[in-house]
Structures are given as C-alpha cells and as structure tokens.
Design a protein around this nucleic acid. Structure first.
Lengths: 129, 129
DNA sequence: ATTGACCTTGCCATAATGGCAACCTTTAGA
DNA sequence: TCTAAAGGTTGCCATTATGGCAAGGTCAAT
C-alpha cells in the first residue's frame, strides 16, 4: 500500500505519516525499489492506534509510550491507566483555565450594553490601573 | 523606563515586549541615544491591557483589534462585545472538545483494572479494528 | 578602571500541521 | 508506444507565542 492509501485507511495525512517516521514515532516504512514507502495491514493498524490516541489529545511523546506499552506483551495495565489518568488531569486543568476565562468574560459581556455608545466594561476591565 | 522595568511593571517579559513591537502589535518604543528602549507610563498601561487580554486567552490578532477599539474614542461597544462573544464561543468549543476527551478517557480508565496484568480496555479501544 | 547588571540583535527551538516546489515513478488512455 | 495525469520523494518555509543562548555594547557603582 502506498502512503496515500495508508493515509486514507488510517485517517492520518501522508505528511504526518512521514513526520511520525522522521521523529521515530513509527518504524521507517519499507520501500519499493523506486523509493515509494510501502505499508502493511499491521502498519495501518498502528497508524489507526496513533490516530485514536491523537484524537484523545495525547501528545506525540505520550503516544510513543502508549505504543510501547501496546507492543509490550508483559505490560502492566496500571502503567497504561496511570498514563491515561495523568492525561485526564492535564485536560481537566486546561478545561478549568478555559472555563475561568469564559466565566470572567461572560460576566463582562453581560454588563456591556453592546450598542453604538463607546462605554464598555470589557475595555474598562482590561484597561484598569 | 528601560525594558526590564517595563517587563516587571507590566507582567510581560522583555522578550515578548520586543516581539510585540516586531509584529507591530505596539508602536516602536522610543530609544535613548545609545539605543535602549524607553517606556512611559502610557506604554505600561498599554502593556498591562495586553497582558489582561492575553490572560483571557485572546490571540495576538484579536488583541490588536481590542487595542484599536480601546484607542478609538468613537468605538461602538457592540463591536467590543461581539469580539468578546466570538472569543467565548471559541473557548466554549475548545472546552467541549476537551471535555469529550475526558469523558471518553474516564470511562475507559474506570474499566481498567490498573494492576500488574496486561489486559487493558484503554489499549483495546485504541487498537480496535 | 573594573565589574556586574542590563541592554542590543540575531539565531535556534518548541508541537503538530499545512503548503509549495522541483523532480521522479506509475498507470491509464490515445 | 508515447504521453499525460496522478501520486510519490525530499526539502524548505510558515504557523503561535514563548524561551534560551551568544556576542557585544552600555550604565552605574565601587
């Protein structure tokens, strides 16, 4: 399978597949005599794994750890669980930051007339001494 | 005031102040004869405005628009309000994405024994055909 | 005069992704 | 069989906002 077909089959762009190879997240693909990368079903399976992990917001570094655990028959599920829980914590922290921004902005917005006059509590807040 | 003092006073690093000048978010600072940037109280006020907007998660481009509105005496508060509401929408969308990741991961994590055995629903889900 | 703190510019790096360009390979149709 | 189109290769640039480092100039205090 060429890289374009692998991209279609995995949901990861050809560009990103090359990138993942370059940064050694995945093994270098085998090549045809003319240099085209070739992908097996097992390769596609790995790429799909990566896409699902990426869709869950894992960074490439963590995805590497997940891949290693996946391929380690003698892994301990506690290690996987810990990785996932750490990631959940990170996500929850980001959510809390964003939510706090929304809360502040929402309260300012609800105080803003939103008409043709220049007075605006949002700008006032940002400009506060 | 030199850039270091301006950084301390505004909460924006000297590096970022130079960067904001370079991308024209702020006017080039005046210079001493030896080339040191000089900042007035008004400059600090602007930098603080930027920091507050940044703390609310606005991107530099939007901060530029906010600055323009702030400095426009004949602005309409509806324009400010609209900018803020758009940003709230963007933030809420990101929150929803992250929350959906958390929900999925949390349900997988709660199904994972988290012990020394290799079986793990998290990896199973990522590896699903 | 020296020293240390601070300033200048310029370059590199980050994370993950897209775009473009120049060039080569493969495949299908005329 | 020749040609054109589609798709592959590498390499370089750009993004966003931020930090770090290095080489060299400036300023202030001792």
């Amino acid at each position: 399978m060429n890289i374009g077909a692998a991209a279609d089959a995995s949901g990861i762009s050809a560009k990103m597949i090359r990138y993942y190879e370059e940064i050694k997240l995945i093994q270098p693909a085998s090549r045809t005599s003319s240099g085209y990368r070739q992908y097996s079903e097992a390769d596609i399976h790995t790429l799909r794994f990566i896409r699902r992990a990426r869709d869950m917001g894992f960074a490439v570094e963590q995805i590497g750890e997940l891949l290693a655990l996946w391929q380690d028959e003698s892994r301990h599920s506690e290690d996987v669980k810990q990785l996932a829980q750490q990631h959940i914590s990170t996500l929850n922290q980001k959510i809390a930051e964003l939510q706090s921004m929304v809360n502040t902005l929402q309260s300012l917005v609800s105080c803003c007339a939103g008409d043709e006059r220049p007075d605006c509590p949002i700008l006032q807040e940002f400009a506060a001494q």
